[in-house]
Design a protein around this nucleic acid. Structure first.
Lengths: 186, 186
DNA sequence: CTCCTTAGAGACGTGGCGTCTCTTACGCGT
DNA sequence: ACGCGTAAGAGACGCCACGTCTCTAAGGAG
């Protein structure tokens, strides 16, 4: 019997978890099923992750790398923000709301990271826009800086269907751009 | 043995559920415990609600009535919006994040109601402000109308501690009021 | 070649869900 | 006043998945 070990095995486990997640959703995902799919025992899972939530989070990271490390750079403030929001939408509609809610409920210590990371992304985008002269200053209140991504996240959490692109453009054109003193068109 | 019936019994059940919710939180709340506290059997619960989520939701409604039916009327737009957000904060910090997340995960059909209700509340507030002449028009994009309550809800969901009032005022002063063309102070 | 880690497999105890069953109280109609 | 039917009170039951424990054997390190 070929016996998998170390990183190789771990990859198989994470892939199995991801497959189960896509097929059954978070609520239906069981450790037994993941182990069975990976053709191994539960203990192999529990040796690496303390519970279902940790396994799933690890499998998400493994599958898609860490969230937005490729900050969009379209040359315009509007394009950049649209890009960020679109990325968020794509990523989370793939997961589906039940996975998101399930993880929130079972892994309360997950969010701070994802949460604060976006603030940095937005800050970078705004800084560039200020340097280009699109807006007067990069000195924007945090609450404004995080408004679009937070509203986007809110949309993702509450809408039980994919977020339409019209909502995304509305968030940018009717909320964010006015707040940073960017007059569109005119 | 005095045997409770109908509405009387139902009230006892809902109170028991609420007490368990406050004591143990949603994740730890069990049907057994609720039944025991109400000095009855589980069947009495299952005869009325299909599962834990429905019971808890009913108990929340029973305990605090339906959300914001008392739309604040402070005489100023700023005061009204602050009032609404403060009510949301109060209500939900009482519940705690784990209850909220748990319910979201298990009762996907709960939110639309709560969600859309706030839009109406905000619309009423803005309409009054326009009539008072505080702002030019009550014709505000939906995405702006819902921005403060949505951001508030986002804050509640992600912050694992009570929302500070500084955040609430920031939402109103740095996001909402500028968006509806209200120049503060000046 | 031996040793030690750990993969693979499955049994096990636990806990809560939701169902089923049974007895018994009590409101209602006649 | 009486009996019928509905539903309360109580608990047993099967089930499922969690997370733990135990055992055997593979295969890398020395």
């Amino acid at each position: 019997m070929e016996r998998r070990r170390g990183a190789e095995l771990e990859a198989v486990l994470l892939d199995a978890a991801w497959a189960e997640l896509m097929e059954s959703g978070y609520a239906q995902l069981t450790m037994e099923a993941v182990a069975a799919r990976a053709q191994t025992g539960k203990q192999v899972l529990y040796r690496r992750w303390r519970n279902r939530a940790e396994l799933v989070i690890a499998s998400m990271r493994h599958h898609a790398g860490s969230i937005v490390e490729n900050v969009p750079d379209t040359g315009s403030l509007r394009g950049d923000v649209l890009g960020v929001l679109q990325q968020m939408a794509d990523r989370f509609t793939q997961l589906g709301p039940d996975t998101i809610h399930g993880l929130m409920a079972e892994a309360p210590d997950l969010d701070p990271e994802v949460y604060s990371r976006m603030t940095g992304v937005m800050a970078a985008i705004v800084k560039r826009a200020a340097e280009r002269g699109e807006i007067a200053t990069a000195d924007v209140p945090v609450v404004v800086l995080t408004a679009p991504t937070n509203l986007m996240r809110h949309e993702i959490f509450f809408s039980h269907s994919p977020v339409p692109s019209s909502t995304i453009t509305a968030l940018v054109d009717d909320v964010f751009l006015p707040l940073v003193g960017f007059s569109r068109g005119t």
